[in-house]
Design a protein around this nucleic acid. Structure first.
Lengths: 333, 333
DNA sequence: GTGAAAGCGCTAACAT
DNA sequence: ATGTTAGCGCTTTCAC
């Protein structure tokens, strides 16, 4: 029995009703007599009819599909967000087209347009360098786009984040209070506002609060990779830093291991605080103290926000700030 | 300027050609005079026309979208595979609908059907417990489905894997050769053939090879989680095991840390070998020795295989076995 | 090399 | 409560 495509028309004929009626029962419309509903359902079952979502999408202009743009799925931070997004999407009957951007501005524009051509009902964007070009593209479309765990300088797009500046400020302050005169700030690319305008600002404010002058020799701009972290020990030590505030968990894990491998005791001789509270924080030794972010929730709330936008529901606050916390583990005194 | 949808018809009229011609230039069909091509291209540019992929999908019966079913994106093993899949998909102009199944058989069937209703051109499935029901669903559809890093007992679906049995056998053998009389086998659920029929078989064969009787007290069936790993130390020690062959990196990381935290030296008093060679192996201390799998390639090759299937190209071997290796790091002597 | 026209499978008025 | 009928925006014969 080679499976020919069964269409709504086949079902209609077989059940002696019109296509409209079949459509109604498939879509749960109440305007159908229970008897006919049952009859149609039986035929659907018998014929093994499965509605064609593409045709439906064309007719209704809704695809129940959302696009998700992410720098890298293998990064635990983003995969945690993705998981939250996916679960809420499933809850609301949406599917997800997942695309990797490698934080490459050009590719971001390309995939954005691909997603739009596929008529996704909405988009969740992760990526921390929103270029002017990208911002233009965002503006050009009516499709709602929300940023998850990603900062846009101009708060024009809806977004879900934590208060990165305050969190860093608080952690750096605690490091200083514990006697660290020279706290390094180890971050990802400074062309990303999340690093330069938020986290670094928090760092500076902590210094200012206690009257320590800012020293740019203590700022280490990196690529956020584990490997880079492992190589940072000599530079950190020669800068006379005794602690580091780090903006990424893999990077921080690299630093912790690099220190330990070089015979520097963490936290005894060097304290490390990281930023994302991924499961990696528990897996390295010593376990890493971290700013805690509700990663799953950031994704989940972003997706929930997007569903509202897609349904033209009213939004109380389009730039959501979720609470952060501080988790003391063993990489700090 | 509120963006109204520009259709192929608008372009046709504005360029004084027929829809068919516009369609031809959009699709790179050669039967268009260079002059008219240019004219059309100019109008497309001017009107900012973007083809509607949904309409195209309905008309052509191809969506250039493939479905990917994965147990959990936050698992480094699967996200590595996903990355390979995504890159090759992009290369071949496909997009990916990514769905999480939580290794839940029911959900797997549901999402499979959702993907089929969305008319994906093909599917990549990851998940190690292919139930009879799932197998039925696979059979019912003409849509090609390939398994990536996942074993189906009956080799009916195309798939990409390594030789799990041989790899485990080889590693366990090396453990025994180094003097470990009692090597534990710590694995994920044994209802998954990849564990029970392949890896466990490899383990048993290694024992047999050297004449050590199999002792089921040395088999530890777990849920593959880090947490579980950290809790395993007492049981492992009281079973008098001096080494463990572990089937998942997070699980293995838990064991290594659990041992260390309990004062058991790894590898001095207890050796650990893991199976997936994710980046986690380098991040724990001691670094974990592992079977090496070409994770990215498994995904990439699976996707490449799928493209061939989708184009009805001939396949030389539908059950691909990629080479594995053994990487000695610091969790073994 | 180009155009006309018939669908693809469904939804959504609009009737009845 | 149910049916009729246009489309949705595109591809794809089939003519010319």
């Amino acid at each position: 029995m080679d499976k020919q495509t069964v269409t709504i028309y086949d079902v209609a004929r077989e059940a002696n009703v019109s296509m409209a009626t079949v459509s109604r029962v498939v879509n749960g419309n109440n305007n159908v007599k229970p008897a006919t509903r049952k009859k149609v359902l039986d035929v659907i079952d018998k014929l093994d009819y499965r509605p064609n979502a593409v045709a439906r999408g064309l007719a209704s202009k809704k695809t129940t599909t959302v696009g998700v743009i992410v720098p890298d799925v293998t990064n635990l931070y983003f995969s945690a967000l993705a998981r939250g997004i996916d679960d809420v999407a499933t809850m609301y009957k949406y599917n997800i087209i997942l695309t990797s951007s490698d934080s490459n501005g050009e590719k971001e524009v390309t995939v954005l347009n691909t997603l739009l051509s596929k008529q996704v009902d909405g988009i969740i964007f992760m990526g921390n360098n929103i270029t002017e070009e990208l911002r233009e593209e965002f503006k050009r479309t009516k499709t709602p786009i929300v940023l998850a765990g990603s900062i846009d300088d101009e708060q024009i797009q809806p977004s879900v984040n934590i208060d990165y500046a305050a969190a860093v400020q608080e952690e750096v302050k605690s490091l200083i209070d514990r006697g660290n005169k020279r706290v390094a700030f180890v971050c990802g690319p400074l062309d990303q506002p999340i690093n330069s305008k938020y986290r670094l600002r928090g760092y500076k404010q902590a210094l200012k609060e206690v009257g320590i002058p800012f020293d740019d020799k203590l700022v280490f701009e990196t690529d956020n990779s584990y490997k880079t972290g492992t190589l940072l020990q000599p530079a950190l030590v020669s800068a006379k830093a005794t602690a580091a505030m780090v903006t990424d968990d893999e990077l921080a894990a690299g630093i912790v291991n690099g220190m330990t491998d070089a015979g520097v005791n963490v936290p005894g001789e060097f304290e490390v605080i990281t930023s994302n509270d991924t499961k990696l924080t528990e897996m390295v030794r010593p376990k890493m103290s971290s700013i805690t972010q509700p990663l799953y929730d950031i994704g989940a709330v972003a997706m929930r926000l997007l569903t509202k936008l897609m349904n033209d529901e009213s939004i109380d606050d389009k730039n959501v700030i979720l609470p952060y916390g501080l988790m003391k583990r063993d990489s700090t005194k």
